[in-house]
Write a protein that binds this DNA or RNA. Sequence first.
DNA 1: TTTCTGACA
DNA 2: TGTCAGTA
Length: 129
Amino acid sequence: MKEKELRRSLAVLPIGTVMRLTNLSARQIRYYEEQQLVTPKRNEGNRRMYSLNDIDRLLEIRDFLDEGINMAGIKHIYDEKARKEAQKKAQLEKPLTDRDVRKILRDEFMSVSGLVREDEVSFKHNKNF
DNA sequence: TTTCTGACA
DNA sequence: TGTCAGTA
């Protein structure tokens, strides 16, 4: 599934195409870029080139706006998303702490002993386990 | 022709 | 946001 992601991130669409695909004006699309909501690549002639991911992003922004969310609100949403992903990634790269291990063992014990339902076990199993 | 930046309403 | 100007 790596090939698909790579294609989706290829910036090949000029702003004119993006306008038609998103129903947004060039003015709006450029403004959202100023607000750091999208970061299109630039070609040799300083032309903005968008990827399919950028299109999705713009469509999402348009929906948020329709729902009455302002620029600050949308920025906050993406900032939070980025913050959480960064945190998750950092956590995955760290070895388990003693506290984590104890929690895993306790949860396993609780689960096996039938004292709690499986879906109530708080530990979220991952590759590290 | 299309897009870019800057600026004014 | 829309729109106009002067470019590339």
